[in-house]
Design a protein around this nucleic acid. Structure first.
Length: 429
RNA sequence: GGAGACGUGGCCGAGUGGUCGAAGGCGCUCCCCUGCUAAGGGAGUAUACCUCAUAAGGGUAUCGAGGGUUCGAAUCCCUUCGUCUCCGCCA
């Protein structure tokens, strides 16, 4: 949510930065609404002050036992009541109107975020690893001879519909191993704090991170009151919902592995084969809650944490800075990490790391206090570290051999009981 | 799921319709006293918003949250969230 004070003081900067996202200028109309709101609040508060003062006189008259004066004042105050009640309703309405408006406007990109309309304008900032030169036609993950049988889309569809998968045997185990590996690395080497969270949350949590009110159709609502989280960003970030955190506890660097649920509304026809885009998938998510002064460097750190996973898995990738038009609602800066998928002969997104500034903190009313100073809004960051299903795809596609077997990255061996590959029969050996 | 109890400031805790943003204690900050330490004395110690000269000051709201009753609510009523105890169920 935006800071109205900032908009009042920097209307043209506000419009210019939103313009980079392709939005029309709106500062002037916001300021107009705010001005009206303040006038209404002022008159309501003035009326209320008069009523409060009068009530005190009533109380005083009662206290000294002046029954006649008590009755007279009481009637007098009673008369003004309706008028004041209406003024208070108007003030609340005006306040809500501004709040709802501010809630529905996306975050401002940082000045140096590349300008652009869509993903074609994203800027590659690093590249790591060299895709292996294969002397055979690379297959997609579900086509690789040894493991095709382990992806059971038909049965999953029978149970749950399209965009679900059942994993079996060596692939199910590899999937589990990947999550373990990622968490261990983040906890042991990156010093992230491991967290287990619910996957069902209330409305408030989704408002806090920005999925609501605008993107309700992207998530699943169950039992009329809970939502299935689309990402653990929701639960980890909302850890500090409504809190004033002790500055000494910052930064809070957290990691959690959870199921994620997305309706994929609006993605009809995209990535319909394979398990690249699912309604339910597993992801290791990193969230950092920090002091505003450190959020820039924390984003770099977080992005490195995600990249390290790919390096240890020996998977070629590139890191791109998203352009203004491609960034998500709450982000001020986003780096996407794209992993090489030989079967598609292209890089595909496997992680997205964003600095949200104080945007989510304002929605959550999450602040911190450093020493004796006043509470200040926190900064929040989130990033995948990594999407496990997509990582599974990358591991098998990059490890595939001419005979249809799959070589596995060394760091995973110990998570697979010492196995180093999946042989042509689909077994870990 | 059923029954009951409870939810007050950084913490503990008083307050059951009237001047309560809230006694008292702890903690913290500053000052005084005390040749270190301990003890003692004094002052201060919430947040948001509105107004205003980005001063001083004034105002509104907040006693889990949201409504209501009343001239007036931390105190009464309703709803809701949470915690605890007992029962049920369950991994």
């Amino acid at each position: 949510m935006h800071n109205i004070q900032f908009i009042r003081e920097n209307p043209s900067e506000f419009d210019a930065l939103l313009g980079k996202r392709g939005l029309e200028p709106c500062a002037e109309s916001i300021i107009e609404i705010d001005k009206k709101r303040r006038e209404i609040i002022h008159s309501a508060e003035t009326a209320k002050a008069e009523q409060n003062a009068a009530s005190k006189e009533v109380g005083a008259a009662k206290a000294r036992g002046d029954e006649e004066e008590f009755q007279r004042l009481r009637a007098l105050v009673g008369e003004k009541k309706a008028e004041i009640a209406q003024a208070e309703i108007d003030a609340k309405t005006a306040d809500d109107e501004l709040r709802n408006l501010l809630m529905s406007i996306p975050n401002l990109p940082f000045e140096d975020v590349p300008n652009g309309a869509d993903e074609n304008d994203n800027v590659e900032i690093r590249k790591w690893g060299i895709p292996a030169a294969l002397n055979f036609d690379a297959k997609e993950h579900f086509e690789i001879a040894s493991i095709a049988q382990h992806f059971d889309f038909e049965r999953a569809a029978r149970l749950s519909g399209s965009r679900f998968v059942i994993l079996r045997g060596a692939i199910a185990r590899l999937h589990r191993a990947l999550g373990q590996f990622m968490i261990d690395l983040h906890v042991n080497e990156h010093e992230l704090d491991e967290v287990f969270t619910p996957v069902l949350v209330r409305d408030e949590a989704l408002y806090g991170t920005g999925q609501l009110p605008k993107f309700a159709e992207d998530s699943y609502k169950v039992d009329g009151e809970h939502w299935l989280i689309p990402t653990a960003e929701v639960t980890l970030t909302n850890m500090v919902y409504g809190e004033i955190v002790d500055g000494a506890e910052l930064p809070m660097r957290m990691v959690a592995q959870t199921q994620c649920f997305r309706s994929e509304a609006g993605s009809a026809g995209r990535d319909t084969t394979g398990m690249l885009r699912q309604h339910q998938f597993e992801k290791v998510e990193m969230v950092t809650i920090c002091d505003p002064n450190t959020s820039h460097e924390e984003l770099e750190r977080m992005t490195k944490c995600a990249e390290t996973i790919l390096q240890k898995l020996e998977l070629p990738y590139r890191t791109v800075a998203l352009c203004t038009g491609d960034m998500g609602f709450g982000a001020r800066r986003t780096y996407d990490i794209e992993v090489w998928l030989p079967g598609q002969n292209t890089y595909r997104e496997i992680s997205s790391c964003s600095n949200c500034g104080d945007f989510q903190a304002r929605r959550m009313n999450s602040r911190f206090r450093a020493d004796d100073s006043k509470p200040e809004f926190l900064h929040t960051l989130n990033g995948s570290g990594l999407a496990i299903g997509r990582c599974l795809i990358a591991v098998v596609e990059n490890g595939q051999q001419a005979d249809g077997s799959v070589n596995l990255p060394e760091v995973l061996h110990k998570y697979l009981g010492g196995a180093t590959k999946i042989d042509i029969s689909g077994k870990l050996i």
